[in-house]
Write a protein that binds this DNA or RNA. Sequence first.
DNA 1: GAGGAAATTTTAGAGATTAAAATAATCGCC
DNA 2: GGCGATTATTTTAATCTCTAAAATTTCCTC
Lengths: 391, 391
Amino acid sequence: MRLTDQEFNRVLVLKKLRASEPVARTDLVGLTGLTGGTITAITADLVRRGIVIEEKVATSGPGRPRVNLRINPQGRYVVGTTPTNEGELLTEIVNLRGESLGFAKAALTRDTTIEGLARQFITALEQALAEWDVPREEIYRIGIGIPGIVNNRTGIVEHIISLDSGPVDFGGIVGEALGVATLIDNSTNLLARAEHWYGAAAHADDFTLINIDLGIGAALYRGGQLVTGVHGMAAEFGHTKVVPDTGRACYCGGIGCLQAYCSVQSIMEQSCAQLGRPLPDFDRMNAAFDGLMAEQAAGRIDIGPILEQASHYLGVSVANHITMQDPEAVVILGPKFTMIEELRSIFFDALERNTFPALRRRTRLHFKLGDKGAYARGAAAMVLEQIYRCS
Amino acid sequence: MRLTDQEFNRVLVLKKLRASEPVARTDLVGLTGLTGGTITAITADLVRRGIVIEEKVATSGPGRPRVNLRINPQGRYVVGTTPTNEGELLTEIVNLRGESLGFAKAALTRDTTIEGLARQFITALEQALAEWDVPREEIYRIGIGIPGIVNNRTGIVEHIISLDSGPVDFGGIVGEALGVATLIDNSTNLLARAEHWYGAAAHADDFTLINIDLGIGAALYRGGQLVTGVHGMAAEFGHTKVVPDTGRACYCGGIGCLQAYCSVQSIMEQSCAQLGRPLPDFDRMNAAFDGLMAEQAAGRIDIGPILEQASHYLGVSVANHITMQDPEAVVILGPKFTMIEELRSIFFDALERNTFPALRRRTRLHFKLGDKGAYARGAAAMVLEQIYRCS
DNA sequence: GAGGAAATTTTAGAGATTAAAATAATCGCC
DNA sequence: GGCGATTATTTTAATCTCTAAAATTTCCTC
């Protein structure tokens, strides 16, 4: 659905304000290309709603002093919640600046249905809210990140891997039980929203986020909006093929998926096979991976070739993506192995050699360790993006 | 640049009208989601400008009979012109329905500069116009397709392979010499525009065009608009890697580019090497390829494995693209080898096996032989897309 | 405390869109 | 041949957003 000019302009003002705060109205004129009168009208509305606050600024020259605008840290509180691969439910309350005001972690028991998962969400959320002592009416939205296929307009979860499939009105169920409106999206999309509003891509309208965890997820922003694909399943970056036909098998049934080389799970599989160790359980995998990395750093094992191969193929895949899409930036959230200088240089080497020459070194690249608060920030970002759409 | 709501709606009406003509105003209400009054206003403007004509329709039931609308075949004439790999300049005059009213072909002499090429364009265009006996003032726009990097807003050509590089105001030079305004774009983009307005993607806002010629070009439509990438160089599909590290070398300097397997040039290189024949000149390559295909069909040579490999890797690449982008349709314009049933099934096999399972068989695929009139239709499409932007 | 400068707000006007009412054009039927 | 039913299109009145320009605010400097 295309945004109207009005929605677009309002979100534009909010984005520029967020990305450059504190900022005066005059600056927003330049940043947005709108006229002063329009900025006055839009910011007045934002101030009236309590989303933005004014802030006197120490004056310095002649003329009427500028009034700085900022996102109101007490304006709206948003709860973000996501299940992790470790079988936990992370819940965090943030303000619209993306600042955390409370964090909770609950254990999830293995469930077989999506409805069962929803019930666990409800219990955990109720507990977290009680713990933080936040009255419900102070919570503006609950943002839910789902590691699966979601319709972010209807709140309906279509599919979560290893759970009974079938559409479930997840957002509706959780929202009704808690008496708070929900927003729902794929968890990788939340990470991308967080980067777009609060992170490395705060000034980029066309960027790609790649999240390396047990699996590999990606999300695309184009023209300042998240791209979902006609079936809502774009950006399955982990399942693009880097070694077609002859490569490693992937759980998706394909051969040579990037995910079969570069995900934490596949690195663990290869490493455990090499070392003759048993593969840890799914929910211990990330911890075991950290342990392995420590052993590797200490020189007690040598899984160097596996990590090098992972870095190499990540470079190849990102190169292909850049060649095809020419984005402004690529943000790679990853586990520690992406932080090792030597592996990083293997990545960059593969990236450079495999990118179409005219596009080499022209794309901004950011590496970050994934932080768990990002999901809640993503939920807050979703509120900011949709604030003029659902009211 | 984002279109205003007004521009967007006008182009939307024109698109729906074009894609479903003849069509009554009532239908456009349903097709566009706009109200009757707005449709009246917009179509009145289109009729006033002579772009659209009304057409009485034989009545059939009760009620006021509908008035059908059609693109006026005498509304605007657009000349499209593109150089080919065979060293010719194809020039064609079409109306806004994309129907050809005249065609001309001129030989280009090898040039070393972009300016020189522009001069040859001018001569050839003058000759074609004289031949067709069309007065200049009847020509609305000259649309120029450039096999290189172009800024379609400014008309400036940044780079054409094997010509002296450096920005040249190609559109300005040609337009001034002929006294007709020009529109300019990359030639693959013109093909995509032609498909979007007149071809297989006339109802798709999110599709990908792949053109297989001596090289491989691609263009992406997203949300009904051509995607160019932040550096204007998106969609270098031919230079994404299908056999990284160990594959065939590509002229771009990369290893394992799709182009090194699937382009006409690479198939010719492999075939000639196998058969011990000399590689034909660049401008004879396509003809020689057709000859080779005939020999193959007659069973006089066996380049089957080369063609099979090409088809296979094309399938892998398209699969990766679908996995990453989830488009509505992919249109593949190609030379004859894409029309051979057996090769097609190799393609589909590779496509299916390498597409992310949830996206298999959900993307519409069109195979077409490239026709040379497509460039002129693309120029006409560019006029339709920009008719509310440059007046 | 008057004048200057820069930021912001106000005002008036232009356009686009919508919903609803009005009008137009035809058919079927008596 | 005229009347009412029916569907298509146009008109009207109101709303809304944005812009440009003028007015106002607020502080600094002299």
